[in-house]
Design a protein around this nucleic acid. Sequence first.
DNA 1: AAACATTCCAACCGCGTCCGG
DNA 2: TCCGGACGCGGTTGGAATGTT
Length: 349
Amino acid sequence: MARRTSGPKKKLRRGLWSPEEDDKLVNHIAKYGHGCWSSVPKLAGLERCGKSCRLRWINYLRPDLKRGAFSQEEEDLIIHLHSMMGNKWSQIASQLPGRTDNEVKNFWNSYVKKKLRQRGIDPATHKPLPLAAEGISSRTAVFSDAELILSSSAAAAAAGRHMPPPPVAASAAESYVYSYSHSSGGASDGSLQSLSGYNSNSKQTAADHLGAAAAAGYLQQEQDPAAAAAAADALHCGPSGAPAVVLPSVSSSSTLNSMAGLSPAATTTDEQCTNNCSSCSFHSGLEPWLELGSTSGYYGAALDELKWSDYVFDGGYGGQPGQGIYGDSKDAVQFVDANALSSSSWCLN
DNA sequence: AAACATTCCAACCGCGTCCGG
DNA sequence: TCCGGACGCGGTTGGAATGTT
């Protein structure tokens, strides 16, 4: 950068803003708008840098800010979006009207992280923490390099309300199954990192990981190997051990894909199911790409999906149904108005 | 009541991207 | 094509508020 040659730099104020400074900034922007931020402090009579003014306005003074504590709905949404996007705070915040990226980030760091850890979930990867997973992995798999295999029936179950309540065995199958893989050529810190770190040159990678990221950490393992095998069968619409790789509806939705910069076409679907079965959407005729606009739409289902991790960490299927996913007790589905979700606030543009 | 520890959040910092000259 | 300014983002920090000993 070029060195500034004009006169001695005026000492700029830093630190907390005084009410007087706030007034000046608010009045100025109310009258003239912010225009070029670098000129705002001068025009508003503030001894701050433009950057500081911008930050103050965006994070604190903007009239459309919600402020106050985050609701359970917001919390669940943040967790879900974080599982898909990683630390894309601005993108997450854009889905929360009245919230700023800074606010969301602080909320995450000060509260949600802790809460997830308490529940045995790694907040960075949304996968079980090593200790939490230990008991499970000793029976089945190690998860660090695990590849998430999602069943079409899980997707359908997640989409859910199109189907009658599953029988017990199917309920057991209502899960995501990790397929253990040592062959990860990628990051060892989990699929979510891969997703959050994707760029335009690696959309396929992102697509590959989207499903994993969407459901990352939502691990279900069967206590009973026979039931597990049956579940796997039901899940994978084929012989156990030969699972079809399918994304759940949550990550399949065009909206959520668009959030991640993906199109449904970029992701894997039930169409990969080559087995003649009736449990996947491909063969059962269920639409894997659920539409927004009804309360049974994908997003409610998505949040419903999230909930079942509680069954893992809260004592298996003996746990209380309806207990919130990472959270405590909310029925995550109810608060989501899919119609509202399809409104402009849900468009990423 | 005082000292210390912890939590929380507003603000800062550095970097990347975009865009106009 | 290059350069520099403006902007936006994510990570980090400082310190006020709160809790604990």
